[in-house]
Simulated assay, not measured.
Amino acid sequence: MRKKTEQGPGKARDTVLSEPAWRTACVYAFCTPAGAGLGLLVGPLADWLVTLPWAPMQGPAELAASVPSPWLLAAGALAGLALSIVAHFEQLTIRLSDDRVVLTRKGRERAFAHADIASAFRDGKHLVLLGHGGGELVRVECGLDFARVADAFTSCGHVWADADPYKNEFRRWVPDLPDLPNGANAVLRARAEPLKEKGPDADDVQELRDELARLGVVVRDEKRRQYVRTLPTTK
Results as ranks from 00 to 15, higher is better:
61 A>K: 06
202 A>P: 03
100 R>G: 04
12 A>V: 05
141 E>C: 02
106 K>A: 14
147 A>T: 10
73 L>Q: 12
207 E>P: 00
26 C>T: 13
22 W>G: 09
180 L>Y: 06
117 I>V: 15
192 A>L: 00
180 L>E: 04
229 R>K: 15
35 G>H: 04
188 L>P: 00
110 R>H: 11
227 Y>K: 08
117 I>E: 06
181 P>V: 09
45 L>C: 13
73 L>W: 10
213 A>K: 03
73 L>I: 02
208 L>T: 12
154 T>Q: 14
60 P>G: 13
41 L>F: 06
46 A>R: 05
40 L>C: 12
168 N>Y: 07
227 Y>P: 03
159 V>S: 10
34 A>K: 01
186 A>E: 13
93 T>V: 13
179 D>N: 15
36 A>F: 02
168 N>S: 12
198 K>P: 03
156 C>A: 13
213 A>M: 04
230 T>M: 08
101 V>L: 14
215 L>H: 01
163 A>Q: 12
118 A>G: 11
40 L>Y: 02
141 E>S: 10
88 H>T: 15
190 A>G: 05
184 A>I: 05
150 A>F: 07
96 L>W: 06
41 L>G: 08
23 R>C: 15
121 F>V: 10
193 E>V: 07
106 K>M: 14
5 T>W: 02
11 K>R: 12
39 G>N: 08
208 L>P: 02
222 E>A: 03
105 R>M: 14
